[in-house]
Design a protein around this nucleic acid. Sequence first.
RNA 1: GCUCGAAUGGUGGAAUUGGUAGACACGAGGGACUUAAAAUCCCUUAGCCCGAAACGGCUGUACGGGUUCGAGUCCCGUUUCGAGCACCA
Length: 939
Amino acid sequence: MEYNFREIEQKWHQRWVQQRTYHVEEDGSKEKFYVLNMFPYPSGAGLHVGHPLGYIASDIYARYQRLRGKNVLNPMGYDAYGLPAEQYAIQTGQHPAITTEQNINRYREQLDKIGFCFDWDREVRTCDPKYYHWTQWAFQKMFGSFYCNTCQKAQPIEQLIEHFEKEGTANLDVAQSEELTFTASDWAAYDDVKKQEVLMNYRIAYLGETMVNWCPKLGTVLANDEVIDGVSARGGFPVVQKRMKQWCLRVSAYAQRLLDGLDTIDWSDSIKETQRNWIGRSEGAEIEFKVQGSEKSFTIFTTRADTMFGVTFMVLAPESELVKELTTPEQQAAVDEYLTYVKKRTERDRISDRKVTGVFTGSYAINPFTGDANPIWISEYVLAGYGTGAIMAVPAHDSRDYAFAKHFNLPIIPLIEGCDVSEESFDAKEGIVCNSQGKDFSLNGLTVKEAIAATKKYVKEQGLGRVKVNYRLRDAIFSRQRYWGEPFPVYYKDGMPQMVPEECLPLELPEIDEYKPTETGEPPLGRAKRWAWDSKSNTVVDCSSIDNITVFPLELNTMPGFAGSSAYYLRYMDPHNDKALFSAEADNYWRQVDLYVGGSEHATGHLIYSRFWNKFLYDLGVSCEEEPFRKLVNQGMIQGRSNFVYRIKDTNTFVSIEKRDQYDTTPLHVDVNIVSADILDIEAFKAWRPEYATAEFILNDDGQYKCGWAVEKMSKSMFNVVNPDMIVERFGADTLRLYEMFLGPVEQAKPWDTNGIDGSHRFLKKFWNMFWSKEDFAVTDEEPTKEELKSLHKLIKKVTEDIEVFSYNTSIPAFMIATNELTSLKCNKRAILEPMVVLIAPFAPHIAEELWEALGHDTTVCDAQWPKFEAKYLVEDTVKMMVAFNGKTRFGIDFPADADNATIEAAVRSHEMTPKYLEDKQIVKVIIVPKRMVNIVMK
RNA sequence: GCUCGAAUGGUGGAAUUGGUAGACACGAGGGACUUAAAAUCCCUUAGCCCGAAACGGCUGUACGGGUUCGAGUCCCGUUUCGAGCACCA
């Protein structure tokens, strides 16, 4: 019988659905394993061959773990909120829910063809109210919490109120937006609104007036990770800084734990490094500088406390509050002019031209180490959001300060012995310190490292400041001015946000008639007619009934994309629970994701936010693991392989690549789907576009049209998108799966090249033919030979080890080799072939099922047992070893596998290739290097 | 600029983690079967040299050094490419 993949794949797909083969329940008698893919945003373009790469890799792992007897959770769902559906809605008026639903159905259809072992009973969609109920719930919990630095944990806000009632802000060490100071009696005297305002300073989800990335073109704010090079990540539109009141999440409170947690998880170095960079921890000191001739003082942050003697001026960020206080009347006009200039500059301007700009405030600051007065400047190179928004400038040892000093002609004092600062600053933290002699304190002669430590100690002892750790990680802006997102369960009373009662969740997204912002510039939800909260009846009511007594306006912003994706992996554990995000039992069983597979583009977004979110739930005692993803594998992008035709300029004649140089041609992208092995299907080409219907061709000498090619991003506009459906149609899902894995290491980016797929398909046919001879199922119960067993056990060993380390691209050759060996041995014995079916089941599940059934099993191959290899079959009778004399001459001798040194030495001596002179010399030692080599060292 | 990672035939990529470099596949070339095509199968395929032949020799893993009996693998330096951060003090 021939290998009819279409029939086989259809049959088994149906059977898996009917028998609910991949349905999974908690089962205390079995060890669990949780495999997860980053759930997709269902875009209108459907899947291309790059998308399933990670899904296939994790599917293989999931199936393997199941065959090892584990209870495997491998769910799938959709990140259903997103900008494309909303923009489509703005253009066409079609509700984004409809667009999203259509796209989901298309995705599902495509996914189903590839034979994944997803438990679809656990599917989640972020736009489903039953799902976002728990997104809203978590938000409310964050609103009701603050972060205690002493216990390094989120705590209920009530505890903070209690503290305020007892002692105000005394003895308080908590995460906060700005440092407030008040007493217990102050607190008691505050009215309700004031108290709410104060608490907002501490909540983990808080309404904060901060500088945000505003994208006018998209009409919304963006998080830091959504802005790349000063433009929006989606669309590439300019982004400006704007002060706005927005919901924020106090992610920064978790900076240290997010950093420390990286050491406990099994992620790639590169992604850990990316996260470390993003968190940006730097240890330094805050040092106080007094303003000359005034009671005022301010604090700067530095990591180079050792350079205190090299300070020649101070710089404030233009947005700093100190600017107002420190500007002298004489300088007022100049400062105002400068501030106007800075305001006009966008984020992008700042990045693209790094001009040295600044203005003198007129004030001077006293260096606490030297007593010198240093002029205080303002410059945009100092950032308001980092440290204290003020720096001490050490031009000799900081390139930015150096550029500033040169430009404005300020003094430069070198502090490292032998360093040359005539052309550029000496930034390296190395060398011996000099020129650093104070009244009662000297750093001269110390190394930079020693000097930093000594200065910190001195600063602390003298009360000049304190040792401080700063992080680059900022709080996440959590509001979006969009329609297609989770609504906030928040209404406003006296301008202060109030939470919709927990038992009233979910608060469902209202219908609106248009999806644009309102004429007055409010977010789209401003158009909703029914979008007010009646706090008496606890229901959503008509906006027209808003009064000041019981009915209040609801929040018009919605949550950003990362809200729904931050805890979805937890929801899969218990997706239908309507009492809680998940039950404690489900969480205790599944705990955390054991293997998470997805793209590295989420390194500073989703993978930070969900770690934060999970840690918060952990603090609450809701989640039992602090880190959500134990092991992370980043699959590489599959790039497209574009094809080109060459049109002779100003004609409709196309010339084949070999003859292209004889003409003046323009390369044009051509649809890769009408090109096969770089040979153009001319008829299909003529039919492709009307303008090519009359095209003429100059062919190769062999009468074919050969196209050029290049590796580019897979995209519609390059006509290089390869659709998995087409591959499945032509070769079958099993071939696609095998080929995608064979293409190269999962983690690596690589171009898609359909040309090589025949090899994988041929292998499956060969595999099939081991079982079938013409029309007969030819498997016998004969005893296998040693050679056959060796072939099998080599394969078991290799495949098992490869899967464990996720290196499938090398186990597929192992299958090919074993199949070739066994075919040439004409082996059709059950004892060999049956385990091989199990081994291949994770990779090519359909063919495995079909053969498993043909072998007479009435259960699916998914419930088989993973074969174990036995070392005895792998031991060679003889081992070929290379013999070297003092590392020079070499030849090979076959030794018995268990030969000892004496035997080997004797064999070497008596060997005909052993040099004659050896007999006169004494062998000092015989080194046997594992498996490979005998090394003779002589006197 | 800082931090991390990579570099192996015409191509994708192997190499038991320091032990015969180039597995396996694609592509290419040759052959068998066939009227022909498709399908299938076999041989060659890093470069160079010697030879009637060989399981013969030399060179070779971006470049230059080093450690080692032995280096694609470890160390130092250089070049190129990729990724992340970037006026973060």
